[in-house]
Design a protein around this nucleic acid. Structure first.
Lengths: 146, 146
DNA sequence: TATTGTTATACTCTATAACTATA
DNA sequence: TATAGTTATAGAGTATAACAATA
């Protein structure tokens, strides 16, 4: 029988390992969800950003890529009729990317599939969930998720 | 002064939000680290898998892509002299992908940059880290990270 | 003059299918 | 016959640079 040594590892190292597991699982879920909806990961990421209309500009910034990439990305989403380009009255250089009704449905579909990972936490009691929340809050300095 | 309402949200929802923050941060760190080392994300992911030599085959499976992709991926890493293809004596169909010395250095460089996120946890006391570890262990059913 | 978005170009990733060499 | 890896092909993402329209 294998006796599991009480590890010498610092808890931080073990936490790191557990988080890596969680990250990996989440990433795989994202890729699978995107593929199931016939979305390239970049397209799925774009959709997730569109909780409200955004200028191409801002989209590029959030996706961490060049403006020129967004053109092609939105071209293809537009061809699929899940987004449209709308003019911004205040500044005619700007085009707002807006979800169509089909786009909203697709985004919802995607979000539904991504919510699953949190079922991981369903095994914890309410008290434990509160404990976990408080620890994460303390660990994470304030900063928007984006 | 803003009095923070004790939220009605279930703790699970808040945990979800905090984890999303953590995921997003980690993802951005990965992309930045890869770019800084002049690696395409897929190449960086490949490097991370190579803690020990692997058949092209196995690499494709771990990266969740087709065998044919790995050929090009390894071609470019080999051109950069960070990996080599070595024959497997037992089965001459198999080629093992092995890190070169430069490859090990590059992988270490990448890992060093990815370790940062854990500094997020440095603000927690040892006892809090243990608590966090135990909660995550309970939340995560046993399953390899991969 | 600076900014928003597009186009052109070149490189990489990705899936599919057809091929080879081994087993 | 099945498997490991390659090649060919086509579609998509990405960065860079040059450009038009607008500010």
């Amino acid at each position: 029988m294998v006796t599991r040594q009480p590890t010498i590892e610092s808890p931080a190292v073990e936490v790191q390992e557990l988080l890596r597991t969680l990250f990996g699982r989440q990433r795989r879920r994202f890729l699978i969800a995107a593929a199931e909806l016939d979305l390239h990961p970049a397209q799925a990421g774009t959709l997730l950003q569109l909780s409200s209309p955004l200028p191409m500009n801002e989209l590029a910034s959030r996706l961490g890529c060049d403006n020129s990439n967004v053109t092609g990305l939105i071209d293809r989403l537009e061809a699929r009729k899940v987004v449209t380009r709308q003019p911004e009255s205040h500044d005619r250089r700007i085009k707002l990317v807006v979800l169509t009704a089909a786009g909203h449905r697709l985004r919802r579909e995607l979000l539904d599939r991504l919510r699953q990972p949190l079922d991981d936490l369903a095994g914890l009691s309410e008290a434990e969930q509160r404990q976990l929340r408080d620890l994460l809050r303390r660990a994470l300095p304030d900063e928007p998720a984006h």
